[in-house]
Write a protein that binds this DNA or RNA. Structure first.
Length: 872
RNA sequence: GGGUUGUUAGCUCAGCUGGCUAGAGCACCUCGUUUACACCGAGGGGGUCGGGGGUUCAAGUCCCUCACAACCCACCA
């Protein structure tokens, strides 16, 4: 057992010259003084590992990029998860919160390429093997950064189960899945049109392409007997047909014919086909068909059996088909081709204002080239079927719910998934191609071999790697040692997956598909989606806009707990909201409030023998226990429904308003040491999921908690109290509140409250006078003054008439609002339908409210009358 | 073109299955140094819940419609 008490003691004793006892905490909580020690305390005592007892609560962390620092979105992600982990741990569930990191293939390689570029090098200077081992070292060097950040967030993850997506067990399972897909005929290799970035020289899945609206000149050119419009004149060397709409009368006579076209490079012949794809209204109603470089054209080509002719090389230059334009990059070639068309008088006009959507590489913004490539594709229709069924049956709970049908819609229209990537950093695809027979592919896991010899045949390894999402799509079970590990048996399916809405399709949907396919079970029961954390100005945070807020900076200034609460406060599932510094400040202040609550209690109890127990004596005691019980219940209900923001709000106001502003204030008049310490413990337990560091720090300073840690203290036990007694304190609050309001409105000083023969007031005189900050509550024979109206006890403030008159306006205002309220209640009760149809409980409540407000009106009226003669 | 979400106090946002006189944080105004806390305490101002219609005893909450905004999906050369 490592205990921190010693450390705290040392630092405090040091500050105070060695004479002050340990509970003398500084006035202000300074997070940086304690956070890392507290995290060490938890980690060294293995407080994060599952206990093995209780119903499992399993969350596998969305793995961040191993080489990149965490951003504010991660802070939100992991804060939400950690609140739930800590809450469920306290509730006695067997919590597994499993951390990991993603090799993030393409992302990471891009970062490494930038690194190389600094030395004037490029990835193409190295073999894929060399590059792989370099990136490995690079990532290895950087991965400490995000791990220490995760610790600074206070994430209570089980480090012993940390998983990296290139760990052997992940690779093994990924290969197993690939083999299964292969055997089931769900993965196929084929020459398809693939989204390709000529800058990074790799293909992408459809989903990874970002589209941008932009102005692209639309060129109208002469094309044999036609005039047609195109945005891509440079691909004309790959044209293998011209298409028109089947019903287009203008061109009917050409359909099926071969036409002669006079081009820049001389004459050539093309077929004219009729296809529904053509919109007769667009341009001239004639489209040139370039199957090798356009998705639409590719489909037309399939339907009409047209040849696909490649014109663009992988590096983005034109090939020999382009004649004198060979070697030019697409952009340049376009200019030159247009120029040549002009010279030959083939260009009719240019529409400069044409708007279209252009696919871009999400990393470098280079225009995506549809490229004809041999790649591995997963038949997603087949994988999606069971997923759609499962989702429609409501087997997975979505938060927010609307994302479920969105996912179904996505899966219903899903296209096959290209999983080949032409990069080095990733899991090598375990497939080998027969050198002599390009159609002969075999599955083999010996990827460290470039050439295999089997039965006298030579096979060459596919040089490509898997799309990162192929392995991370299996995250919920690869992390649990699928298929035979004990973790898989105990902790699958996961309870909750928490992730950003932005990757719902490329990650969430695929996890569901692959989870069902591989394990036959849903990967997780619940999925909670958080929105983006936008910048304060409401825009997206991005390096280029310079509006990125680093979690590190926030933690340094306000503390980890403050960041966490700032992220969670007022944020609902699925919605993107701006980062709100004010909420972080509020969180920081809340920590300080907790700190000072503890300071007060520790000072009050100093020197006493403390035995925390929920034993109520005074009305305030009963009232506090009632509030505690209600808060605990509300908190549980909110957290079990993943309403983090409301849960936080609940505990925040219990601590601040109920416990600090009322109960502690009341304790200054009458102390119940056992209950005060019990209250503090309960407050710490309930606040702990939201503010783990400050609550644990305080726990470590308590003299009576021994060597224990708050993190595994469990939830406050159920308490008993007397509602009637609690109600008495509410009455005291009412008296105090009105007294304070009058004092403030009339700017009174040194006021006294008088009463005649009211035992209740006699009993609580000291408490009331303490809470209301008045000079005393006294019993008198009789006297005059300003009567309180909100309480049924007769009492009055010692105020002279002159001063009181100013209060009349206020009273009249109150009368009006009370009358309005009463009228509302009356109207409701006069409504037969309401009395009949609304729940009885509600009707009774309304009756009581009406009574109360009528009493209030009477009181105010009496009070007004008492002074009206003065005005007359 | 299709879909989703949003429009609530000056700002950033909560408000779960319709049910107390609509909330929070920050900001604002007045008072206050009461030995836990000025990262504080007390009191207070501020919203006809985007517009319009409907269902209901009852609507910020459900339905329809309009306006505006954001995001996602889709094969417009």
């Amino acid at each position: 057992m490592v205990t921190l008490r010693y450390k705290l003691e040392i630092s405090l004793l040091h500050n105070r010259g060695g004479t002050i006892p340990v509970m003398q905490l500084g006035k202000t909580y300074i997070p940086a003084d304690y956070e890392s020690d507290i995290y060490d305390l938890w980690e060294k005592n293995e407080a994060f590992a599952p206990t093995g007892g209780g119903e499992p609560f399993v969350m596998v962390m969305p793995p961040p990029n191993a080489n990149a620092p965490l951003h504010i979105g991660h802070a939100l992600n992991y804060s939400i998860m950690d609140v739930l982990a800590r809450y469920n741990r306290a509730k006695g569930r067997d919590v597994l919160f499993l951390p990991g990191a993603d090799h993030a293939g393409f992302e990471t390689q891009v970062v490494y390429e930038k690194h190389l570029a600094k030395d004037g090098k490029s990835r193409f200077d190295f073999s894929r093997e060399e590059l792989y081992s370099q990136v490995w070292d690079f990532v290895d060097e950087n991965k400490g950064v995000f791990q220490s950040q995760l610790r600074s967030f206070g994430a209570s993850v089980d480090w012993g189960r940390f998983t990296f997506t290139l760990d052997p067990k992940v690779v093994k399972t990924a290969y197993g899945t690939f083999k299964k897909l292969w055997d089931d005929g769900l993965v196929y290799r084929g020459e398809r049109l693939v989204n390709y970035c000529t800058q990074h020289r790799t293909g992408f899945a459809d989903i990874e392409v970002v589209y941008e609206d932009q102005k692209t000149p639309l060129y109208y050119m002469k094309y044999g007997p036609f005039e047609l419009a195109t945005t891509r004149p440079e691909t004309k060397f790959g044209d293998t047909a011209v298409a028109v709409h089947p019903d287009d009368e203008r061109y009917k006579k050409y359909v099926g014919k071969t036409i002669e076209v006079e081009g820049i490079e001389g004459q050539f012949e093309l077929r004219v086909v009729a296809d529904e794809m053509v919109d007769p209204e667009f341009g001239t109603g004639v489209v040139k068909i370039t199957p090798a470089h356009d998705f639409n054209d590719w489909e037309v080509a399939q339907r009409h059996n047209l040849e696909a002719v490649r014109v663009i090389n992988h590096d983005g230059t034109l090939n020999h088909r382009a004649g004198k334009f060979e070697g030019m990059e697409v952009k340049e070639a376009r200019k030159e081709v247009v120029k040549a068309l002009k010279e030959k008088d083939l260009l009719v006009k240019v529409d400069e204002n044409y708007q279209n959507r252009v696919g871009k590489c999400y990393k470098c913004g280079t225009a995506i080239e549809p490229m004809l490539l041999d790649q591995w594709f997963i038949n997603m229709k087949k994988l999606a079927e069971p997923a759609i069924k499962t989702l429609k049956a409501g087997k997975i709970n979505f938060y927010p719910e609307s994302k479920c049908s969105e996912t179904v819609r996505y899966l219903e229209n899903v296209r096959d998934w290209n999983i080949s990537r032409q990069i080095a950093w990733g899991i090598p695809i375990p497939a080998f191609q027969n050198i002599d027979d390009s159609d002969d592919w075999i599955f083999n896991e010996n990827v460290d071999q470039e050439i295999l010899e089997i039965d006298g045949k030579k096979y060459r390894r596919d040089p490509d790697v898997f799309d990162t999402w192929f392995s991370s799509g299996q995250w919920p079970f690869v992390t649990l040692d699928y298929p035979d590990g004990p973790d898989f048996k105990s902790y699958y399916p996961n309870t909750l997956m928490e992730m950003g809405t932005d990757i719902l399709y490329q990650w969430g949907a695929r996890m569901i598909c692959l989870g069902l396919y591989v394990t036959g079970e849903i990967p997780f029961e619940d999925i909670y989606l958080h929105g983006m954390v936008r910048s304060e100005d409401g825009r997206k945070m991005s390096k280029s806009l310079g509006n990125v807020i680093s979690p590190h900076t926030v933690i340094e200034e306000f503390g980890s707990d403050a960041l966490r609460m700032g992220m969670i406060a007022g944020r609902s599932a699925g919605d993107s909201a701006a980062f709100a510094p004010a909420k972080v400040v509020a969180g920081r202040n809340f920590c300080n409030k907790l700190w000072n609550v503890a300071r007060f209690i520790e000072n009050t109890l100093a020197g006493k023998e403390v035995k925390p127990e929920a034993k109520a004596v005074t009305p305030a005691d009963h009232w506090m226990l009632e509030r505690l019980e209600k808060t605990s219940e509300a908190l549980s209900s909110h957290l079990e429904n993943y309403r983090l923001s409301e849960a936080y709000d609940t505990v925040y106001h219990f601590v601040w308003d109920d416990f600090a502003d009322w109960y502690i204030e009341a304790s200054k008049s009458e102390v119940n040491p056992g209950l005060l310490s019990f209250g503090l413990e309960s407050v710490l337990k309930m606040a702990h999921p939201f503010a783990p560091f400050v609550t644990e720090t305080i726990w470590q300073t308590l003299t009576w908690t021994g060597d224990s840690m708050l993190i595994n203290q469990g939830w406050p036990e159920k308490v008993h109290f007397d509602s009637k007694k609690a109600e008495e304190f509410s009455e005291i609050q009412t008296i105090v509140a009105e007294t304070r309001a009058i004092i403030s409105a009339l700017k009174l000083r040194k006021t006294k409250l008088f009463f005649t023969d009211v035992p209740f007031l006699r009993d609580h005189a000291e408490l009331i006078s303490g809470l209301a900050k008045i000079q005393g509550v006294h019993e008198v024979e009789d006297g005059k003054g300003l009567h309180l109206t909100t309480t049924n006890y007769t009492c009055w403030l010692d105020v002279d008439r002159e001063t009181t008159e100013h209060y009349l306006t206020k009273l009249e205002k109150q009368l009006k609002s009370a009358e309005n309220a009463a009228e509302g209640f009356k109207k409701r009760l006069d409504n037969e339908a309401y009395v009949k149809k609304a729940p009885k409980k509600l009707v009774d409540e309304t009756k009581k409210q009406l009574e109360d407000s009528e009493q209030l009106i009477k009181n105010i009226e009496i009070e007004i009358e008492r002074f009206s003669d003065h005005f007359a």
